[in-house]
Design a binder for these strands. Sequence first.
DNA 1: ATGGTCGTCCCACGA
Length: 266
Amino acid sequence: MKIATWNVNSIKARLPNVLEWLKEAQPDIACFQELKCVDEAFPLTEIEELGYNVAVHGQKTYNGVAILSKLPFDEVVKGLPGDDSDEQARYLEAVVSGEHGSLRVASIYLPNGNPVDQAAPLESPKYSYKLGWIDRLIEHTKELLTYEEALVLAGDYNVIASDTDVHNPQAWRGDALFRPQTAERFQTLNNLGLTNAFKACNAQPHLYSFWDYQAGAWQKDNGILIDHLLLSPQAADLLKTSQIDKHTRGWTKPSDHVPVWIELEI
DNA sequence: ATGGTCGTCCCACGA
């Protein structure tokens, strides 16, 4: 079973590329982020025509996440628990079942967190929202891990986890994606017992999943690795391979992110 | 050192 994650940066603007990639990559499950549209505006029919069931948690202009699955959904939950006042559409969780058992998958769009006031980082509203959101994800993940089932937490984490995940570490030092408090919390999440699928399969440093639209970042390979699939022990036992579909960044009208995927022995 | 680019929506804002 092939499971992918891709921050598409507007599903409407990206639809031709998304359809092209779905036909080419043939994922069984695809988690999308940054749809930038409400549920009703999601291009449902075009994607259903390719054989997918679709779960959408949309929002006007910003955020928005979806899960596509060739297998039917047994269960869909919208939103990350832990703060009823949070209205941003950044988390969608679904359970799918096939003949070889069930699998829980989440599509995650972790907050960017910029701008950060360097004099008082923790008082910056967007940065404190980001850190609080990671704390909620940690708490929710603890709960999910008690189920002892195959679990894939896939998405745009907006975290540069190490110097080997960025072309130019110095340029990112104070950024919300690379600050110590960010990396520490991401490490805490991983330390719950999750396996980073791409890193488990690829020892090579400086492989990226995002290249900024600005300043020729793509041409210079000035990228960062921020899109990940984190696996529960039961899912990690099934891991065969993980790859990045880098070539899609060279397509016309590309997203600034590219798909990252895993192959599980299911 | 600065500005550079997209997407959404209509003027900046978020990334």
